[in-house]
Simulated scan of single mutants.
Amino acid sequence: MSAKIRKSIGKIKGLLPTPTIRKAQRKPPGQAPGTVLHTGTQKLDKVLITVHDFTETHFESIPITEIEKSAPYLSDSSKTWIQVRGLHDIDTLKKVWDFFDLHPLIQEDIVSISQRPKVEPTEK
Score class of each variant (00 low, 15 high):
residue 1 M to S: 14
residue 4 K to C: 05
residue 5 I to Y: 06
residue 7 K to R: 13
residue 8 S to D: 07
residue 9 I to D: 00
residue 9 I to R: 09
residue 12 I to D: 04
residue 14 G to L: 05
residue 15 L to N: 05
residue 15 L to G: 01
residue 18 T to W: 01
residue 18 T to R: 13
residue 19 P to H: 01
residue 21 I to M: 07
residue 21 I to E: 10
residue 22 R to W: 03
residue 23 K to V: 14
residue 24 A to D: 09
residue 25 Q to N: 13
residue 26 R to P: 00
residue 26 R to I: 10
residue 26 R to H: 06
residue 27 K to W: 00
residue 30 G to S: 05
residue 31 Q to A: 11
residue 31 Q to P: 00
residue 32 A to E: 14
residue 33 P to E: 06
residue 34 G to S: 02
residue 37 L to D: 07
residue 39 T to W: 01
residue 41 T to Q: 15
residue 41 T to I: 10
residue 42 Q to H: 04
residue 42 Q to W: 01
residue 43 K to M: 08
residue 43 K to E: 07
residue 47 V to F: 00
residue 47 V to I: 09
residue 48 L to K: 10
residue 50 T to R: 06
residue 53 D to I: 03
residue 54 F to W: 13
residue 56 E to Q: 12
residue 56 E to V: 14
residue 59 F to D: 14
residue 60 E to A: 14
residue 61 S to G: 11
residue 61 S to N: 10
residue 65 T to F: 05
residue 67 I to N: 02
residue 71 A to N: 13
residue 72 P to R: 08
residue 73 Y to V: 10
residue 74 L to W: 08
residue 74 L to E: 06
residue 76 D to Q: 14
residue 76 D to W: 09
residue 82 I to Y: 04
residue 83 Q to L: 13
residue 84 V to T: 08
residue 85 R to F: 10
residue 85 R to M: 11
residue 88 H to K: 03
residue 88 H to R: 01
residue 88 H to M: 03
residue 89 D to Y: 08
residue 90 I to K: 02
residue 92 T to F: 02
residue 94 K to T: 13
residue 94 K to E: 14
residue 94 K to F: 05
residue 94 K to S: 12
residue 95 K to T: 06
residue 95 K to I: 00
residue 97 W to S: 11
residue 97 W to F: 15
residue 99 F to M: 06
residue 104 P to S: 04
residue 104 P to M: 04
residue 104 P to G: 04
residue 107 Q to R: 15
residue 108 E to V: 02
residue 109 D to G: 11
residue 112 S to A: 11
residue 114 S to H: 12
residue 115 Q to F: 07
residue 115 Q to S: 15
residue 116 R to N: 11
residue 116 R to L: 15
residue 117 P to Q: 05
residue 120 E to Y: 06
residue 120 E to D: 12
residue 122 T to Q: 14
residue 124 K to N: 11
residue 124 K to H: 05
residue 124 K to R: 10
